[in-house]
Design a protein around this nucleic acid. Structure first.
Lengths: 128, 128
DNA sequence: GCCTTGACTTCGTGTTACTCGAAGGCGCTA
DNA sequence: TAGCGCCTTCGAGTAACACGAAGTCAAGGC
């Protein structure tokens, strides 16, 4: 069983965010110890990781909560959950392409600046 | 010269967001017509695209504004701009890897649900 | 036995980056 | 000249945290 702090390190989320997510009901069946401290088992940790993936695809907290509720309804909600995942799979793909373009843009920019800086240095060398 | 609406279509930003960005000074030398309507030339459009790339790397509006101000200072700020771009190039790379993991996760999930749904259908077929 | 430390708790306000809608100006057309 | 469409500004609302205050509890040191 892990504490909030340990989970923060494992998931790269802040402690604040983890408390926020658990309070919003995004991690089902979260346990508490006798001092009311949140305790995470492997399953809770996995849920948090899933929540992070969904959130990073742009799913709102509300919609993630809805997805979790569907899960808690049991297997009968699988077709609906499948539809949702298909939709976000497409979004994830688009994000991937955007991410590639972003890296290309940054590398292009970096190269350009690098060239200019080197040009200035070699000009100065010529002047000496 | 383009209007806000045309630019919104070209950049996939909302008109609200474009007005917000221009008001924050993220697009230098933005023109206005005689009715005070914003007018974008190719250069302004390119700036908006650059702003979008920087923002999507997680740069805050404030820091983008700072970057634009550095640009307006002229070539002397290029070394500093180079440093900034190098930093965000790394961030863009990390985002790319995250995006790949996200797509993998979604495809994994989708496959899993798909299998379960098909299993149920073939079970039902067997029962008939 | 008390006190400090440290990790947790709740609660409530602050921040960022939009997002929305109201209210109004301008020019074109019927 | 009335209405429509497209723009404007401005101010309030929202989502998702981010942060700090104030309090609880158990362990360890003196």
């Amino acid at each position: 069983m892990y504490t909030v702090k340990e989970i923060a390190q494992k998931t790269n989320l802040t402690e604040h965010t983890i408390r926020y997510y658990t309070d919003k009901g995004l991690v089902p069946n979260i346990q508490r110890d006798k001092h009311n401290n949140r305790l995470f088992d492997e399953e809770s940790l996995n849920w948090l990781i899933r929540v992070k993936y969904l959130k990073d695809c742009g799913m709102s907290i509300k919609d993630i909560k809805h997805f979790v509720d569907l899960y808690l309804e049991g297997d009968s909600s699988i077709p609906l959950r499948y539809e949702i995942i298909l939709k976000y799979k497409e979004i994830a793909r688009e994000q991937l392409e955007e991410a590639i373009r972003r890296v290309e843009f940054m590398e292009e920019k970096a190269k350009r600046y690098h060239r200019i800086i080197n040009q200035v240095i070699s000009d100065n060398r010529g002047a000496n």
